[in-house]
């Protein structure tokens, strides 16, 4: 809600945040739908994701322009400047999350996966858990930005450690399946691609959390290696 005593610049920044939140919601819905589309090989939902993708791209361009204008017209400093710089990077990461969701949906739209996946395969790679973790990481990153809470943003790092473990296990299982004599090569290739994309979504969610922390606390966490939960204490 816009407060009446806000300056014009504050209103512009408020609008910027709202526009980013709208983009976050769009991307989040793409990711959620991509799980349904892939799991059920649902072409209609896959097409829906592509429609959302166009809106995400349009948001990316318009928010980018909004940030450029704010820098040019208002000479922002300190927290205001950090919000705008973080925004530019956050939308770029959001747009890439949307791309990954759309690419997963494309396999379904183009009907590239010839046969249904054996349940055992999906269970052993824990595809549903990977989808859930990727979505959860995005949800937490979004919540941190909306609530302007860097402690919440830090939770994404803890989630990323879990995500990496599940991903690593999935890859091991894929190896195991690929070595079998009658390995379903076509399905395995697409599944491998989906798993990779979900792991990347986790990384992008982490980038968004890093930018939120930069905006709120002026701390740069980029390129910090967090391999164990103990490493989080040093952030």
């Amino acid at each position: 809600m816009v407060k009446s005593n806000m300056t014009n610049f504050e209103r512009e920044l408020d609008q910027l945040k709202k526009d980013i939140i709208k983009m976050m919601i769009l991307v989040s819905s793409q990711l959620e739908k991509s799980e349904v589309a892939f799991s059920n090989q649902d072409v209609a939902i896959a097409k829906e994701i592509h429609h959302i993708e166009r809106r995400v791209d349009a948001s990316d361009l318009s928010i980018d322009k909004e940030c450029e204008n704010l820098i040019a017209l208002y000479n922002p400093v300190a927290g205001d400047l950090r919000l705008i710089l973080a925004s530019i990077k956050i939308i770029s990461n959001l747009e890439r999350v949307g791309d990954h969701a759309d690419k997963i949906a494309r396999y379904v739209r183009k009907k590239q996966i010839k046969n249904a996946y054996p349940k055992k395969l999906l269970q052993s790679v824990k595809l549903d858990v990977l989808f859930d973790e990727a979505q959860a990481m995005m949800e937490i990153a979004i919540q941190a930005f909306i609530e302007e809470d860097s402690a919440v943003a830090r939770e994404v790092f803890a989630k990323d450690i879990i995500m990496n473990e599940i991903y690593s296990n999935a890859i091991t299982q894929m190896h195991h399946y690929a070595e079998k004599k009658d390995a379903p090569t076509n399905q395995l290739l697409y599944l491998f691609s989906v798993i990779n994309k979900l792991e990347r979504v986790g990384d992008l969610a982490k980038n968004i959390a890093e930018e939120t922390i930069f905006y709120l606390d002026a701390k740069i966490l980029k390129h910090h290696k967090v391999k164990r939960l103990e490493d989080l204490e040093n952030l």
Binding site: T7, F9, P76, V77, A78, G79, D80, L81, R82, A218
Partner: peptide
């Protein structure tokens, strides 16, 4: 000071 001031008063002043 202009990117990450330590003090809230500074931040409030420089951001207008």
């Amino acid at each position: 000071l202009f990117t990450s001031p330590e003090h809230e008063l500074t931040e409030n002043y420089i951001t207008g």
